[in-house]
Simulated assay, not measured.
Amino acid sequence: MTRSLRTCLFGLIFSTASLLPAANPLPRSTPEAQGVSSSALLAFIEAADKQVDTMHSFMLVRHGHVVAEGWWKPEAADKLHVMHSLSKSFTSTAVGLAVAEGKLSIDDPVLKFFPDDAPAEPSAFLKAMRVRDLLTMSTGHEKNANFVPSEPWVKTFLNQPVPFKPGTHFLYNSPATHMLSAIVGKVTGQTLADYLKPRLFEPLGIEKFAWGSSPQGNTEGGWGLEVTTEDIAKFGQLYLQKGQWNGKQLVPAAWIEQATSKQVSNGSDPEKDWDQGYGFQFWRCRHDAYRGDGAHGQFCVVLPEQDAVIAITANTRDMQAELNIVWDKLLPAFQKESLPDDAASQAKLKEKLANLSVPENHVPVTIKLPGRK
């Protein structure tokens, strides 16, 4: 779908500051000054370039400083990139802010917000569904609601059968995240995107972004956000700092603790990053990390033990392989203390990062988004 068509159909939001340089950039540093080996970073980039089909960008933040960043041409530092389901973690943040402002509780029943869209005789399980169940992907559904442009999305969701008791059955559910967006819209009188602008985007210096909306005017929520790689890194750094930014508490620390902790089980394979538990629109990872992620390799990985954030965009079919390279190559690169300066390795790393490009024979992987033609 072209951007012009999507704008027409879905009310795409695009900030007016799109020609401005990045605001409030993160500070930069050499890797060694922050206890990261340049040679190990080079090994990661070389492995990712060869083994991931196809990387688009990478940024590593350690101790609050960007120590490595690169874009595979034609991607670029100022280019917006679609987040797919990484959008969900931003939506979760909006819910947390609305909760902190007393506009809702995560224990509110979902039907409370949409009395006019509910079925004539809602089932007991639908009545029992809470905001918490939307956040944890445990709504009780057996399959996702099918959003189409011609039907109201909230009504479609509420008319989807709920065969399981909410809170007992994990099902990855993008329409459920859209319901969170619709709830934020109900209780604030603003779209989720507009609600987040002064509370999250502007304080972080995210001055350009795009986010589509439903035919009814609600921000998509579960998908569709477009930001830059550094914006992903800033978002991760905010969470690493327990919601503090430039001396201000933007997001309550208690919410961040809840959102990034295991709230529900979603598997038991110790070798899979998708089996480590799910929070409030955040995934738990191996190595005591957590992440927001989106289809085809969009990652915001937060590593509290290493005081690090990893931002990646890509277009790949194998997201686990992408994370495996992170664990195999990047984890050993972190040291507790600063390292001796390594000018030779830094020069090699800089040259490699400056000359990355998407392979000419790459066939882009696409995804059918809910409610889009």
Rank of each mutant, 00 (worst) to 15 (best):
V131R: 08
N144C: 09
D133L: 00
N159M: 08
A128Q: 13
P163M: 10
P161H: 11
V131K: 08
V154G: 05
K143N: 08
G140W: 10
G140C: 02
H141V: 11
W153M: 12
E151P: 01
P161T: 10
V162T: 14
M137R: 13
T156K: 03
R132C: 01
F157N: 02
Q160C: 12
V154F: 08
K127A: 13
M137C: 06
R132D: 08
V148R: 11
L126I: 12
N144L: 00
K143D: 08
K143F: 12
L135G: 05
N159W: 05
S150N: 06
E151F: 10
V162N: 02
D133Q: 14
V154T: 13
F147P: 07
P152T: 10
G140P: 09
W153I: 11
T156A: 10
N146H: 13
M129K: 12
G140A: 05
L135D: 03
V148W: 02
D133Y: 03
L135Q: 07
L135M: 12
L134M: 09
V154C: 06
M137P: 07
F157Y: 15
T136K: 10
A145Y: 09
M129V: 08
F157E: 12
T139D: 01
A128K: 13
V154E: 01
L126M: 13
V162P: 05
W153K: 01
F147C: 06
V148C: 02
P163E: 04
E142F: 05
R130M: 11
K155Y: 04
Q160T: 15
S150E: 15
T156S: 10
P161M: 07
F147K: 05
N144E: 14
Q160R: 14
S138M: 02
N159K: 12
T136C: 12
G140F: 06
L135I: 04
N144Y: 00
P161F: 04
M137G: 08
E142S: 14
V148P: 02
L126H: 04
M137D: 05
E151C: 04
N159E: 14
T139R: 02
M137N: 13
G140K: 06
F157H: 09
F157W: 14
R130P: 03
V162E: 04
E142L: 12
N144W: 00
S138T: 15
S150M: 08
K155A: 15
R132Q: 12
V131T: 11
V162Q: 10
N144G: 00
T136L: 03
G140Y: 03
S138W: 01
K155V: 09
A128I: 05
L134E: 03
M129D: 04
R132W: 08
L126W: 04
W153V: 11
F157Q: 12
L126F: 08
W153N: 03
F157K: 06
K127F: 02
K143E: 14
F157T: 06
P163F: 04
R132M: 01
M137Q: 13
S150D: 14
N146P: 00
N144R: 14
F157S: 04
K143T: 12
V131P: 11
A145L: 09
N146Y: 06
V162Y: 03
V162F: 12
L135N: 08
V154K: 02
S138V: 01
K127I: 02
N146V: 15
P163V: 03
L135K: 10
Q160S: 11
L134D: 05
H141M: 11
H141W: 07
A145I: 11
P152A: 10
V148M: 03
A145N: 09
V162L: 01
L134Q: 07
S150F: 07
V162H: 13
